[in-house]
Write a protein that binds this DNA or RNA. Structure first.
Lengths: 168, 168
DNA sequence: GTAAACTTTCAAAAAGTTTTGAAAATTCGG
DNA sequence: CCGAATTTTCAAAACTTTTTGAAAGTTTAC
């Protein structure tokens, strides 16, 4: 397979993959493109390579910057802004986990705390079922929270190395 | 908070949560409703409780059954089918991980294998950047694959117990 | 100061996804 | 088998999300 074709395949699959993970296609594609590109790219480069509009490109680059996955760089002697992706994929994963935890898991845990305190006799079958379900989700959620925090702090060797040896 | 209100809150939040994870709102809501309900429910019960159409209910119940999260039960003396959700939340998580791994991670790893074999001189900067990116994603993906396999086989105590003690 | 280069915004259009509901198919008791 | 009860299907409608592109805003070199 030729490089150009391989790049295209990668970009398009990464885009499709992203949509299953709550990241929109364009955002994932821009990220993919920058990931596999040797040099920093301008907004116009990206627009042209992916055949997308200026507005779309701009919005999604900014979103990637918000997520901490892409950086703006200024090349001396150039007027335009250039962009590069974080190439350490482990950092990328940690960054995504961190953001999603903050946006999704944390609020959910807060809600579960409130719901656990439903009024009524815990011997009532309906109340018991509800409280049991909420409690067990909360327990697992809290655990996931801790595990993810650890993962966010850890380096790649933790994940690829020790964990595996321990459980082998 | 009253039980009815708490249930509604739970259902609606679970629905919103689900949409961030590639599960559609209705599917997540039906699952939530069954999770916190003491007794098996019919399709009509669900339709009425969530105010959704017959077709929508039917499709999403079937999808939940496909995912292994909901079961059809026949109550003797009743003509209608009843549905219940798996209440062991750890089993639910494992089931979801298993399905998504099969649908998403496995095909991605397969693709990465192919892309790594791009033609050309590895000393070419563009080829090197591409291959490096693909290889490191593959490495992490393979590791995630193993870890998830382990998680699928393990019981809840692995997750909530030993893992944590080891890394405390 | 100003004009060219460049970036950002946002309303409207397009694309994608979910929901509806009525009709078709299936199941089951008698 | 029959027919009532129940489940399933699917085309069209409603809704949601993404994309476009032109206009407005900002920056910079001179």
């Amino acid at each position: 397979m030729k490089l150009t074709e391989a790049k295209q395949q990668f970009i398009s699959s990464w885009g499709a993959f992203g949509t299953h993970w709550g990241i929109n296609r364009t955002m994932a594609q821009i990220h993919a493109l920058l990931l596999v590109s040797a040099d920093p790219m301008t907004q116009d480069d990206i627009m042209e390579e992916l055949n997308i509009s200026r507005g779309n490109t701009n919005m999604n680059i900014r979103e990637l910057i918000n997520w901490g996955l892409v950086e703006r760089v200024i090349l001396s002697g150039e007027r335009k802004e250039f962009f590069i992706a974080e190439k350490d994929i482990w950092k990328v994963v940690r960054q995504i986990v961190k953001e999603r935890k903050k946006r999704e898991l944390d609020p959910m845990l807060k809600l579960l705390d409130q719901l656990e305190e439903v009024e009524g006799d815990k011997r009532d079958k309906n109340i018991k079922t509800f409280v049991d379900a909420v409690s067990s989700i909360k327990r697992l959620g809290k655990q996931a929270d801790k595990t993810l925090d650890m993962m966010i702090k850890a380096d790649e060797n933790w994940f690829v190395g020790s964990l595996m040896k321990f459980f082998k």
